[in-house]
């Protein structure tokens, strides 16, 4: 009869370790017990990203310091920045935001695009400037992308409209639909649940605007247009809305204090 394969350790410590891991996992998933640890991770990651970016910029400027390209590059950079400011100013009537509110754009220091494409948490971190924001909404040159979520030591954490935990009060005046659209967890897609049975042909393509409830977003800011209308339950319908704005377009965003 063959001997049993010898083992390096007994099974008991592994079983205890697995139970320990499961307990930590349960505490984190249910009660967010390790939130302070998460904040440490975010802050250190943002400091690192910011430092690396500054180092890269100073290296690039040192490299081109003696070349003729320097002026052109600087001009190109400032023109790009001006253009994005102008595009936001041009949208100010549409977004009911005041010109005085347009501060210098905030540079994105950390945006996990893998997380944006693969997963449901769509967060962005932008550097701070002299202005302080408690709550407010975020625009880029393509439109409304989200709102300020948390204040970190060196950055603002923004939650995008498509994040699974985000909700935005929106309406459509032609069909008189008001709802809290939830982020779908998929890129540029939010879901509005309604009890109204609507004609699928006429609702598709309709535009939705912010209703102004909730105190974060101004009223009548364009959000997106309907791309599908399906029955979820017996008396509940799901309206899928494609968001107009694309958070991947710009390197900088504009924060606005809620009025």
């Amino acid at each position: 009869m063959a001997n049993e394969t010898p083992r390096f350790t007994s099974r008991l410590p592994y079983v205890i370790a697995c139970l320990f891991g499961l307990t930590l996992f349960f505490l984190d998933i249910t009660y967010q017990a390790f939130d302070p640890l998460d904040r440490i991770k975010i802050n250190s990651k943002n400091y690192l990203q910011s430092g690396l970016s500054s180092l890269k910029n100073s290296f690039v400027s040192l490299q081109i310091n003696f070349s003729d390209k320097k002026l052109l590059l600087n001009e190109n950079k400032s023109l790009k920045e001006e253009l994005s400011i102008l595009s936001v100013i041009a949208q100010q009537d549409v977004f009911n935001a005041k010109l005085d509110d347009v501060s210098h754009p905030h540079r994105i220091i950390n945006f996990d695009t893998n997380e944006y494409f693969c997963c449901s948490h769509h967060r962005m971190f932008v550097e701070k400037n002299e202005k302080f924001y408690q709550k407010g909404f975020v625009l880029n040159s393509t439109g409304l992308i989200g709102q300020i979520y948390r204040d970190h030591s060196n950055s603002y954490e923004l939650i995008l409209l498509s994040d699974i935990d985000h909700k935005i009060p929106i309406y459509n005046k032609y069909f008189d639909i008001y709802c809290n659209a939830e982020g779908s967890g998929f890129e540029r897609l939010i879901i509005c649940k309604s009890t109204k049975d609507l004609d699928k042909g006429s609702i598709i393509g309709q535009e939705f605007y912010t209703s102004g409830f909730g105190g974060v977003f101004n009223k009548d800011m364009p959000v997106g247009k309907v791309i599908s209308f399906t029955q979820a339950e017996e008396d509940e319908y799901e309206i899928s809305i494609e968001i107009f704005a694309n958070p991947l377009i710009d390197e900088r965003v504009f924060l606005f204090q809620s009025s």
């Binding site: 592994y14 891991g21 307990t23 930590l24 996992f25 349960f26 991770k41 996990d112 997963c119």
Partner: peptide
């Protein structure tokens, strides 16, 4: 800690 998972997830499966 370094990836985007909840604390305890990889501990359990790696053990």
């Amino acid at each position: 800690f370094l990836s985007n998972s909840a604390i305890g997830f990889h501990i359990t499966l790696y053990c």
